[in-house]
Every structure is written in C-alpha cells, then in structure tokens.
Write a protein that binds this DNA or RNA. Sequence first.
DNA 1: GTAAATTTAAACACTTTCCCTTAACCCCCC
DNA 2: GGGGGGTTAAGGGAAAGTGTTTAAATTTAC
Lengths: 134, 134
Amino acid sequence: MKQGLLTDRQKEVLRYRKKGLTQQQIAEIIHTSKANVCTIEKAAVENISRARETLEFLYTLDAVHLCTLQSGLDLLKAPEIIYAEAEKKGLKVKYDTISLINRLRDANPERFRGRQIREDVEIYINKDGDLYFG
Amino acid sequence: MKQGLLTDRQKEVLRYRKKGLTQQQIAEIIHTSKANVCTIEKAAVENISRARETLEFLYTLDAVHLCTLQSGLDLLKAPEIIYAEAEKKGLKVKYDTISLINRLRDANPERFRGRQIREDVEIYINKDGDLYFG
DNA sequence: GTAAATTTAAACACTTTCCCTTAACCCCCC
DNA sequence: GGGGGGTTAAGGGAAAGTGTTTAAATTTAC
C-alpha cells in the first residue's frame, strides 16, 4: 500500500532543496516555519539512510553468525576475536585490523563510547569474508 | 538514531526463513502463533520494498519534470505525449512504447484501472532518458 | 560583527506501526 | 476428508513517527 519511506512533505522539501532554495524560502512557499523545514529535511535524510541500512541487512541474510562482541569489551580487542572465530570456520576476513575497527565504529557509532563497546554487537560473515553487524 | 526499517522481530523471522524453516516451526521457536509469523514476515517484505522505493525516489531528484498525465487519460495515449514532451527538451526516452506502458503500470498499479488513469501521474526524466513517476 | 542560514530541543496532537490473539479461509497432496 | 503450509481479517494495547510551534543555539557568509 504505502509507497516509499518519505512523506509527501519530505519529498517536497528535498525537491526544493535540490533546486537550491534555502530553508527560509521553502518555508514561505509551503507556508510553515523554517525550523519546521529543517526538521522535515532532517527526517528525510534520516529516512534515506534507514532505507540504505535496510537493504544492507539483506546481505547479512547470506551471512552466518560469527560471534557476539559483548558489552564492555575493548574495541581494540575485537579484531583478534573476530579473526580467531573466522579461522575456526575456515573463512578469511576481508578487512585488516584498522579498517575492521573503522567499519565497526562507522556501522553503529552510538554503540561505542571511546574504546568501549556499550551494547552487544552481533557479527556476521559471508563466504567472501564480508562482515555485517546486527 | 534508529537503524534500518526492519524490527528485531522481522529480522529474526527473515533469518529463520532463509534457513528454510516453515512459519509453524518459527512460531514454536519464538513462542507465538503461525499467523503472527506470517504477519511479521509480510511486514518485513513490505518494509524491504519500501526501502527500495525510497532509494528509487532519489533518482527523480536528478530528473526534471516532464509532464503530468491527467486523471482520466487513456493509458495508450501516454507514450506519444511523453515522447513529444521529451523531444521538446531535446531528450530521448529510453523506453519503447510497450515497455513504457508496462513501466507505467508496474510503478503504480493502483493508479490505473484497465486502460484508464485514475489519478494524476507526474512524469520525470533524467539526462539518460530514464523515466520516473511521482 | 552582524545578519542570514541552519540546527537543535521540548512539547503537543495526531496518525501509524508493531506485535499479538483468535478465528477463519485457501491450496495442495495423501 | 484431513493435515500441512500459508494467508487474511478484526481488534486491541503499546510504541513510534509526523507535522507543527516556539525558542534558543550554532554555523556560514558578507
């Protein structure tokens, strides 16, 4: 039934934005406040990245569960755990230590505080050694 | 903040499904009814196509408005209108008559009744002659 | 430095989604 | 007919999302 994630309001703002209009100008055109335009635009951008993440998840379906990084773990200790688990399964992780850590943090910034993991992170791996986090 | 579109419940069901379990089996594992598993799975699939549609929309941002197919128009007359408008803009539509009509109908099945358009359809075109409907 | 543009926060009404139950229905196959 | 797998409809309670306003804070541009 429902179409995409974006509301009509959100699409409208994105289109005007694409044309180069400022939030103030858009606010006048659609008869609301500029703060509201900002909120709507932000929600739109948020929705777009949620859409991306949703499709990302589909790849994890082709992946198997590798291990769980428990809350409280030091982020720097994650790679060796992951490498060891992958080896047990005869799989080679596609990322080196540095990019693995970066990928981990980029995937879920809010789950980390400094070097510490704040919330359990599930690690999945596919045949190509790609990692996904859930 | 929130991750993808899919809830934990929906991901759970999709994973079990990928493994080949029946809805009944999943229902027992997660302690609910098979009807509920069906509903959750359906919502998940729905969410996935909403995610796809959302990203589709982004392409329309790179496209310009070509014309409006007015409610009541005969679907079979749409192609010549679209070709004429594209020509005015010096653009070549990427689709032949048949696939254009199919694309139109597939994009928004609920907006057509037989050969008749039930609701205004906005047509957008990009530099490559790709068409998008809004 | 100041004005414009953008972002954030809090609160509100309103709508929608989510998960669940119960009960029924469809299709296929033995 | 009965069983297995899947789907649908109706309804309810909790949770989340949307658009909005107002007000303040921050960034960017001249």
